[in-house]
C-alpha cells in the first residue's frame, strides 16, 4: 500500500463517485419512507450495502413489518459473504483491519479488486481498499444530501419521490440483467409478486420472491456465469 497505482486510483475514484450518486436516491427514499435524516445517514454508515438499504426502506415504505424489512435486506446482503470468501485470502488482514475490510466488502470493492487480477495481488488489494473507502465516503456524503433534500421537499408523492424509489430499483436491477435467462427470472419474479400481493401480508411478497430464485437456481444450469 506504499505506492498508489494511479491507474487503480483513477478507476476506483470514478466507480466511487458514480455509485456514490445512488446515495442521493437512497437518502431521498429513506426520508420518503418515514426515516429521519439521522437514521438515513446511520443506515449508510452502518449497513453500508446499497441494495439492502433500499430494500429495508422500500419494505417499510410499502407498509411491511419490521421483520419483513430486515429479512429482505439481509437476504439481499448474502452475496457479500461470497465476496468476503474471495477477498479474505487476498487481503490477509487481522483484527481491526479485518473488521474494516469486512465492512467495505461490497459489489464495487470486490468488482474493482477482481478487475485488477492481471496486475497482481498488490493492485487487487489497492483496488479493494481504494474503492471500498471511496464508495463509503461518497455514498455517505450523498445520502446526507439526498435525505436533506427530500426533507425540504415535504410530501413525497407531490414531488414524485414515490416513483423515484422503484425507478432506482429498476436501475439497480437493469445492471444485473446481462442475459436472457436473467431477464426471464426477473420477469417471472415480477409476475409472481403481482400474483401473491393480494394474498399475503404486505412485505411478505417481496421476501417470498426468493422462491423464484431458488426454483430457477435449483433446476436450471443456465444461471451459471
Amino acid at each position: 500500500m506504499l505506492k498508489v497505482d494511479r491507474k487503480v486510483l483513477r478507476y476506483s475514484l470514478s466507480v466511487s463517485v458514480t455509485v456514490g450518486l445512488y446515495g442521493i436516491a437512497f437518502g431521498a427514499a429513506s426520508v420518503a419512507a418515514g426515516f429521519s435524516v439521522l437514521q438515513s445517514c446511520l443506515f449508510s454508515l452502518l449497513t453500508f450495502t446499497g441494495a439492502s438499504q433500499f430494500a429495508a426502506v422500500g419494505v417499510v415504505a410499502s407498509g411491511g413489518t419490521a421483520a419483513a424489512a430486515i429479512s429482505a435486506a439481509t437476504l439481499l446482503g448474502t452475496r457479500n459473504a461470497l465476496y468476503g470468501m474471495q477477498m479474505a485470502p487476498l487481503l490477509k488482514n487481522r483484527g481491526l483491519n479485518k473488521l474494516i475490510a469486512a465492512h467495505i466488502t461490497i459489489d464495487e470493492s470486490t468488482g474493482v479488486a477482481l478487475s485488477q487480477v492481471e496486475f497482481g495481488n498488490a493492485s487487487m488489494r489497492q483496488g479493494f481498499w481504494l474503492t471500498g473507502v471511496g464508495v463509503f465516503v461518497f455514498w455517505n456524503l450523498f445520502t446526507l444530501l439526498g435525505a436533506l433534500g427530500a426533507k425540504q421537499l415535504g410530501t413525497p408523492a407531490s414531488w414524485g419521490l414515490d416513483a423515484g424509489v422503484p425507478a432506482a430499483f429498476l436501475g439497480l436491477l437493469w445492471l444485473r440483467l446481462t442475459s436472457n435467462f436473467l431477464r426471464y427470472v426477473a420477469a417471472t419474479a415480477m409476475i409472481f409478486t403481482v400474483l401473491v400481493t393480494p394474498w399475503l401480508p404486505s412485505g411478505l411478497p417481496i421476501i417470498s420472491a426468493t422462491a423464484v430464485a431458488i426454483a430457477f437456481g435449483w433446476t436450471d444450469r443456465r444461471s451459471e456465469q
Binding site: 441494495a51 430499483f169 440483467l177 404486505s202
Partner: peptide, 25 residues
C-alpha cells in the same frame, strides 16, 4: 451459488413491482 446469484435479481424485481403497483395488499 446459482441460487445466491439469482436472489438479488428476484428481490429487486419484487421490489420494483411492490413499489410501483401495490399499496399494502
Amino acid at each position: 451459488q446459482r441460487i445466491n446469484a439469482l436472489i438479488p435479481i428476484a428481490l429487486l424485481s419484487a421490489l420494483v413491482v411492490a413499489e410501483s403497483v401495490t399499496n399494502k395488499t
